[in-house]
Design a protein around this nucleic acid. Structure first.
Lengths: 339, 339
DNA sequence: ATAGGCGACTAGACCGGTTCAGCTAAAATC
DNA sequence: GATTTTAGCTGAACCGGTCTAGTCGCCTAT
């Protein structure tokens, strides 16, 4: 028992394939009574449009692609990505778009995957994440012609459509808050140094601390393990920082534990600020002061802009809200400072 | 400048479309010299097969579908899903299959999505997750004819192919361990009561405790918030348990914090066992004793079985390894018990 | 010398839709 | 009443592949 085709509907209705097509797509060309009859028959025999046949006529595939170049292991733990994806998904499914997902192991493969998807007509657009400095994907995409939104700062996105948030401002907000509390030695446990936003945060952090606090930045790979190791190294240095800003919440939680292992009490002996605010930050003790932003909404904005692009519009670059500092229990004036 | 088609290649090579098709698909019917020439030309003008045209001839779409019925919010935090997905992904991308992902808000929509994907020829198979007791999706899928693997116990999967792990055994292992430590009042903070594996765990937990320990089970929605609330309720009851088993690690971490808020020390005053062992369990203090399993491999097995099913084979139901107890710092003999 | 076999290739149907150029009959217009 | 318009529909081309049924030339066997 095969799937019913439009020809089956046409035969049962006693009309031509063309008439059925008009009726099913709400186009003029058939009377209302015929349309209703055709719709009823289509419904009755369970007809569904074959997306392949539609795509063959140059129609959209109603799918957008997301290839991520991340080791599978870190993906599972990183709340950021899952929230981003669910945000993208929310926007897409509202418009009956599906998301084609593939995890690859290096950037060359990533481009190859997009090239294949686009070449094969499987996707209408793509979302680029993890923008790097001088990212080679940008020129590739520009020549490919595949509509794409890049999650990253406009300075690195070439002619592709950027959707970004002001990480620099958020860094300033965090540093100013710590300085106001009295901190004068602030460390930052950063993410992968090749990522564009890491560089932006690096620069902003150095700027923000300039003249008001000593600063040191340690780069990691975003995992809890490395976050803990970086924390131990920072805390056992002779000029131990009194506050640490982490580039994600996984590392902040790991850092918190590492500090507690070293018999330091948070926030009495050490203040901690986490970047990104998954439920994790609220679960631990003390709850973490965090730079929170609505990642889900971020993803939704990216998806919306991509769909606009696919529809042939020319959406403007979109700057999402910057992360806002949400003070919780992990920050306090540094030790030795009496108020 | 349009995409080159097989006709373009044929024209340049001075042969027919058919010959090109044979050459490009490695089928006999063309000489090796002609094949090489055709391949070179295809490469030169950047020809890619149009997946829609292929699909139209009844070919596979090389895509499998996964529709998840979860509120977007919990998705982001639940490491289980992301690890499962990356495991599935790993297996799929090794065979150049893509994953079609959609998050929906209720089960009726989920079935509708699968029905659409299948009807439209967009997917070759599907993976069902979050199996419930008497799950209505099973009969739907059976009548649909869409090849599907169900992640869940065979008792509930009807004629669909089950991939599962022995949750009951793991529960027994955890309880026996706690009992051996001396615990006689054990609580369990369980997940959603309608999920099939929750019911299995419920039953196994009751069985395991029968005659050796008092037991109580509280159902939640898997979120940290509810985990913390359940913990507070349990710990403030007159017959406070000395050990709690949590159905996921998010709740275990939240429960740990809740206990610490109540001035209980873990593991001195309370032992905690987490189900599933994301890096989270190792990050917190004390590190959590966990029922660990390789979720990524679990997803990979499911994907492999689905691909076998799609290929027309008849794979056997697959029981993955049960979770193994990994003792860490969150479990100890109960208070008042001197050894 | 002729039939048979085989390798290499072609022509064209086909998949299931969309779309466009007609065609017909009824309605509108003069 | 003749002509034009228009709604409603048909038939067929088309999208880009796959695949079957041939065609053609050449080699071999009888």
């Amino acid at each position: 028992m095969k799937r019913p085709t439009i020809a089956d509907v046409a035969r049962r209705a006693g009309v031509s394939k063309g008439a059925v097509s008009y009726a099913l797509n709400g186009q003029p060309g058939v009377s209302e009574s015929t349309r209703a009859r055709i719709l009823a028959i289509a419904e009755e025999i369970g007809w569904r449009p074959n997306s392949a046949a539609r795509a063959l006529n140059g129609a959209r595939s109603h799918t957008v692609g997301l290839a991520m170049c991340r080791p599978a292991r870190t993906l599972g733990v990183e709340p950021f990505f899952m929230e981003l994806i669910s945000g993208i998904e929310g926007e897409l499914s509202a418009r009956s778009y599906a998301l084609m997902l593939q995890v690859v192991s290096d950037h060359r493969q990533e481009v190859a995957v997009y090239r294949r998807w686009w070449g094969e007509g499987r996707v209408d657009g793509a979302i680029l994440v993890d923008l790097r400095v001088g990212d080679p994907r940008i020129p590739e995409f520009e020549s490919l012609g595949l509509p794409a939104v890049v999650i990253g700062h406009p300075s690195e996105t070439g002619s592709l459509l950027p959707v970004w948030s002001d990480d620099g401002g958020a860094v300033h907000e965090a540093v100013e808050y710590l300085v106001a509390l009295g901190h004068r030695r602030i460390a930052r446990v950063a993410g992968l140094p090749r990522l564009a936003h890491t560089v932006l945060r690096d620069r902003a952090f150095a700027e923000a601390c300039d003249g008001v606090a000593e600063q040191v930045t340690v780069h990691t790979d975003y995992t809890g393990e490395e976050g803990a190791r970086a924390t131990r190294r920072l805390l056992s240095s002779p000029s131990r920082p009194t506050a640490i800003v982490y580039d994600n919440d996984i590392m902040a939680v790991a850092g918190l534990s590492a500090a507690q292992d070293l018999r330091l009490e948070v926030p009495r002996d050490l203040s901690i600020v986490a970047w990104d605010d998954s439920p994790l930050s609220r679960i631990v003790r003390p709850p973490l002061t965090a730079l929170s932003r609505d990642i889900s909404a971020y993803g939704a904005h990216a998806a919306r802009h991509l769909l606009a692009l696919v529809a042939g519009e020319s959406p403007r670059p979109y700057e999402d809200e910057a992360a806002r500092l949400t003070p919780r229990g992990s920050t306090a004036p540094p030790p030795g400072r009496v108020r």
